[in-house]
Every structure is written in structure tokens, then in C-alpha cells.
Design a protein around this nucleic acid. Sequence first.
DNA 1: TCCTACCTTGTAATGATTACAATATAACAA
DNA 2: TTGTTATATTGTAATCATTACAAGGTAGGA
Lengths: 158, 158
Amino acid sequence: MAKSSNELLEALKSAGFRMTPQRTAICYVLSQRFDHPTAQSIYEQVRAEHPSLSLTTVYQTLDSLLKIGAITSLGNAGDDTIHFEVNTDPHINLACLTCHRICDLRSEAIHALEKEVQQAVGSKVLSGRVVYYSECLEKSNPLECTYHPSVNQEVVHG
Amino acid sequence: MAKSSNELLEALKSAGFRMTPQRTAICYVLSQRFDHPTAQSIYEQVRAEHPSLSLTTVYQTLDSLLKIGAITSLGNAGDDTIHFEVNTDPHINLACLTCHRICDLRSEAIHALEKEVQQAVGSKVLSGRVVYYSECLEKSNPLECTYHPSVNQEVVHG
DNA sequence: TCCTACCTTGTAATGATTACAATATAACAA
DNA sequence: TTGTTATATTGTAATCATTACAAGGTAGGA
């Protein structure tokens, strides 16, 4: 379940960050995307509405959201760009090394796993990433690159 | 449990890679390190014995080991460099965003989690990374940066 | 010993991310 | 509303890990 635009904005606001049109737009785009976007892809999408937007602002806003834990970073997916995760509910991520898309896999075990982490580290856990790498069914054709039906296919577009 | 130098070399050999002094040295260093080294740190260590070693060779060898699954990549630990994992037994990694060291946490739940991944993706899982980010006990002093005693402290030097 | 495909090396290129300085503006108070 | 100030945004320039490339070297089989 991704966060709403308002949840992201409220998180920034209550952490002392100012409301700006750029941040509002970035949070809106984040909330509407069910994939695992990169800074560049956010930039391009927001720029369609806010032509003056700077890429630096996107990086800075994502960094702020990261710092307050509103989003997390999944690292790269075989490409060399950082993918972000808006859905911070515990789950497994499956990254395809061919098409560089990441999709979500619901997991029972992850709750026990996070409990283990909490017990070992205490309250200081800032964020986590659980990513497994593989190849989708169709190596040759990224457009058909997809996982087994048990995987949450709605989010296979990042 | 880290791999022995021979295990790494044999893995390369049986995958069709040639034995070279450089690869032997790199595998040896990898097997002796219980932290989560970066390409640069491997380079510096091997270079002490093999002054002609090139950084490119280190990257190339690590890439070969990655491709055959003998090691895995954990991504970065708050710094901007990739950390590698020689111990491919399923476990949780804890990365400190202050001192950039990663240590291992034994986990029961991870076995169930990997089973979930296998069921969803089939045999095509290439590698995984389970990393949680936090701060060690002593933020201000990296030398004392350490986790709760339940965490495997032997490997806290990467 | 010879051959050839594969390796290593050094250097140059790449490209995502960050640093920086000048300008603009959100938020608060009067 | 207006003024003030700390914070945000922008554009450009710098950073730096990683990769590409080409020339020379070598492992391993014939």
C-alpha cells in the first residue's frame, strides 16, 4: 500500500520542512506511482507540470523523505541508479536484472525477520531493504518481462 | 561462515575461468576477510603483494564471482561504494550509516523468507540482499561504533 | 613449444549524485 | 499586509566509483 500525497507532505511538515510547490508536486507524483522510481524518472514526470524544476531539488526532496523514513532506498536493480520505495510496509522486493524493474512480494516471514532485527538493534533501525535478484520469464523481451503470477504484478512497472 | 580461498577458486575454475596469480590473490584476500569489503579495499590489500595489480582486474574478478554466485553484492552502506559479501549463507546484514561497517545477524526467519522467494520466482533467483540500516551505539566515535551484543561482532570491521 | 582465446593493465570515458553560490520564497511576527 | 530571515530552489560545476577500451601478456590445451 503506497502512501498518499498528504501522508508524505504531512511527514515533511511535521519534521520541520517547508511546504513548497516543488515538494508538493514531487510527493504527489510519488504517491501516484506504484513502481520503484528513480530520481531521474520523478524529475521527468514532475517537470511536465513544473518546467522550472531542477533535478537537484528532486534529489534533495528524496533525501529529506529518506531521512524522516517516509520512503526507503532499495539501491540499484542492475542498472546504476537508486530506486526508491514509497511503500514502507514490510515486504520482499524482486528485482529483474534484465529489465531493471522491481516488484513487490507479500511475505509472512518478513514480520518475524523484522522482529529479529528490532531485538538485535533496538529502536535504532532506520530502514531496511530486502531485495532478491533474478530474471523475469522473458529475458529477451523486457516488455514481457514478468514474474510468476504469485508476485504482485500491479507494481511491475519501475 | 566465509568461503575458503579454494572454494572460490574452484568455483571460478569449474565455471570455465582461468587461474591467474591475480585471481588467486584476490580470492585469498576475500577468504581471509570477515568483513564486507569494497573493490577498493581488496585492491589495496592485494596490491601490497602484487604491486602491478590493476583496479580494473579487481572489479572484473569480483564481477565474475558475482556472476557465478560465489559472492553477492550488498550495495552501499551509506557511503557510495559497493560492499561485497563472501558469506552467502542466508543471514541478515546490519549496516551502520555512521561508520559504514556491516555486520552479520544470524536469523531463523530468513529461511522461511527465502522459501517464499523461491516459490514465487522459481529457480531463477540469482542472489539476494537483506540489509537493515541503523546507527551503532556510539555515533560520534566510529572506533567504538558497535551493535548490541547479540549481533555477530566478529565481522564488524568492514 | 606453439597458438589462441582469454586476462591484465593503464588510461580515458561515463554518468549518477553532490557541492556550491546566487536568487527566490515560505513562514512567522509585527 | 509587510518585513525579515532561515530555508528552498536553481543551474552549473565538481566528484568519484565504476566501466569501456585497446594494447600487450599469459594460461592452458594441442
